[in-house]
Write a protein that binds this DNA or RNA. Structure first.
Length: 560
RNA sequence: CGGGGAGUGGCGCAGUCUGGUAGCGCACCCGGCUGGGGGCCGGGCGGUCGCAGGUUCAAAUCCUGUCUCCCCGACCA
């Protein structure tokens, strides 16, 4: 019997002073988690129960697609990380042992799993293979934040697929998409699968699983039939009213005007009729001028992808070749020009590359050559396929990547195929964060009284609140009911505390958020009915005492 | 890494400007009452004021350094 009087469930009336995110406040207040240091969290007993319920769901669905669970160490030799090139990652914790051997704390397990597979799997007949584990990940985050949402140490389920060919990888990827959909549905989350950036070393295809909530760190762009991380989202080109075309660019004096806002004020044209010039420098291309419409913003990730390499903003001294900052333009710039696809044909106001002067009537193609790119940040109100886009904050609870040969190549994971030829394995990697699923569930379902767990994640199915003093008839009834509920297969938490009044017990139950609350007090005996309240919506039900346990189970089964 | 804020009992805070016996609420312990929405009465325990150095007759308070935590941004393979 789980008695609250003997259970470590330290609830608080007030949230931690420095907590900002709702899930951070509630997980602490409800006694589920406590912080040990920046980005370092302890799951208290009740919180760990929730975490392990998420783990159970993930495990079932991974096993169902043929995944095999194993366990690889957190502490890794540095050598395979050097071979894969990931030793250079800043987020990677590095250390050495007493002999001076270099070690790292794994931030995921591609190196470990690929090293093993390279040794153990030599034939195409051993494939396809999906391996996964639940293991602690260590990441030297520049800024941990928002309670459990971004931590330096966390448990992740990471799965890895191995196939002889691209088709095999595609099939494994699709299996995981199905499993992830089932996992997140079962966890009771609202979620989106979005296209995502593959990162600098990621591979060639990736999706993220996003649970919308205010504390989310990512923005997702959503429209009917479209969902993408804002990092890579694209939108239709919009039209903007432009002045009548000119036969040739015409200089205009713009004393002191160095920003788009200055220009619209000085010339009486809308922001969208100006072109903003952003000078950047890359290793291969050198100085490049990137142009977007004046009312648009550059998306750094899209620009990096368009360039195919990293970039940095040009320094003041590097601009002298073109013109003064504040009046940069493409005409006669003498450097390569990238033009955002959001710029429709027409005449625009641009910098003249001379102080206090701009050009109007500048037409892309006629007055300067350019390379067309899509580098602008999508904004709410943009359209895609004619449908309006909305942008929502969301927390990333999972991601899947097609890695290809990214790790199998450097770590030598190959097999012989049916013709005896050596084939480099095609890999995929698939992550999911149980603690983030937990926090997202809190964020999505909480109300002003506390957490409201979906049935699938709740630490207990039922919280049985016993009122009155120990030794009374109502307490005897409560203890008898506990046994009957357990016999119905329900997990029950019994609030038997002597030192808490009814108000405290109800408040704590609502804070903790078990789906069903049953109250046993003097009234229960007098009325011959058991009061049941569903946490979600706080709807009351009266259950006939004679069949209360069965009725409670049936009621519970109808809850979300 | 840039900007901002905070470290005073388990939690939330006041006191710092203007140096002079370290306080409040909750929690906790003991006793009693109460028993369907964080209840009441009485009595208690608990703090080298993050750390180090300095100024001073005297430092939570002033000065210097340092550590830690939070928020915004950058970053996030």
């Amino acid at each position: 019997m789980t008695r609250l009087s003997r259970y470590l469930l330290p609830t608080e009336k007030q949230p931690p002073a420095d907590a900002e995110a709702l899930s951070h406040k509630l997980l602490v207040r409800a006694g589920l988690a406590r912080q040990l240091g920046a980005g370092l969290w302890t799951f208290l007993p009740a919180g760990w129960r929730v975490h392990e319920r998420v783990v159970g769901i993930v495990r079932e669905e991974l096993d169902a697609i043929g995944g095999q669970e194993l366990l690889m160490p957190v502490l890794n030799p540095a050598e395979p990380w050097r071979r894969s090139g990931r030793y250079a990652i800043d987020e990677l914790f590095k250390l050495s042992d007493r002999k001076g051997s270099e070690l790292v704390l794994a931030l995921s397990a591609e190196e470990a799993v690929t090293t093993h597979v390279a040794q153990l799997v030599r034939s195409y007949r051993d494939l396809p293979l999906i391996l996964y584990h639940f293991q602690t990940k260590e990441r030297d985050e520049p800024r941990p934040r928002a309670g459990l949402l971004r931590t330096r140490e966390f448990i992740m389920k990471d799965a890895y697929s191995f196939d002889v060919d691209r088709e095999g990888l595609d099939a494994a990827y699709e299996l995981h998409r199905g499993a992830y959909a089932r996992i997140l549905d079962r966890a009771g989350l609202q979620w989106y699968e979005v296209e995502s950036d593959v990162g600098m070393m990621g591979g060639f295809g990736a999706h993220e699983y996003m649970a919308p909530c205010p504390a989310g760190e990512n923005d997702v762009a959503l429209a009917p039939g479209y969902s993408a991380n804002v990092e890579i989202a694209s939108a239709d080109a919009q039209s903007v009213p432009l002045p009548p075309p000119l036969d040739a660019p015409e200089p205009v004096a713009t004393p002191g005007a160095t920003t788009i806002a200055d220009l619209t004020a000085a010339l009486g044209v809308p922001e969208g009729a100006c072109l903003k010039a952003y000078p950047v420098v890359t290793e291969r291309r050198g100085l490049v001028l990137v142009l977007v419409r004046g009312d648009h913003r550059i998306n750094d990730i899209k620009l990096t992808n368009a360039l195919g390499e990293a970039f940095r903003p040009a320094r003041e001294d590097e601009l002298e070749a073109i013109g003064p900052a504040g009046s940069l333009g493409p005409v006669g710039a003498g450097v390569a020009v990238l033009l955002d696809a959001g710029v429709a044909a027409g005449g625009y106001v641009t910098g003249a590359n001379r102080p206090d002067e701009h050009l109007r009537g500048v037409q892309p193609g006629r007055d300067f050559a350019f390379e067309a790119v899509d580098v602008r940040r999508v904004e709410a109100g943009d359209t895609v396929g004619g449908e309006p886009i909305r942008i929502e904050p969301a927390i990333e609870v999972g991601n899947i990547f097609k890695l290809g040969h990214r790790y199998s190549e450097p770590l030598g994971a190959t097999v012989l195929d049916e013709t005896g030829a050596t084939r480099t394995l095609w890999m995929g990697s698939y992550g999911i964060g149980p603690a983030r699923i937990m926090a997202a569930a809190v964020e999505q379902h909480a109300d002003d009284r506390g957490i409201s767990w979906p049935r699938s994640l709740a630490p207990w199915d039922v919280e049985l609140v016993g009122l009155g003093k120990a030794g009374t008839d109502e307490r005897a009834l409560a203890e008898r009911l506990y046994g009957e509920l357990a016999a119905e297969g329900l997990r029950v938490l019994y609030d038997d505390r002597e030192d808490a009044g009814p108000g405290s017990k109800f408040s704590d139950a609502e804070l903790l958020g078990c789906p069903l609350r049953l109250t046993v007090g003097r009234r229960t005996l007098e009325a011959g009915e058991l009061e049941a309240q569903a946490r979600r919506g706080r709807e009351d039900h009266a259950l006939p005492l004679a069949t209360a346990a069965t009725a409670a189970r049936e009621l519970w089964e109808r809850l979300p």
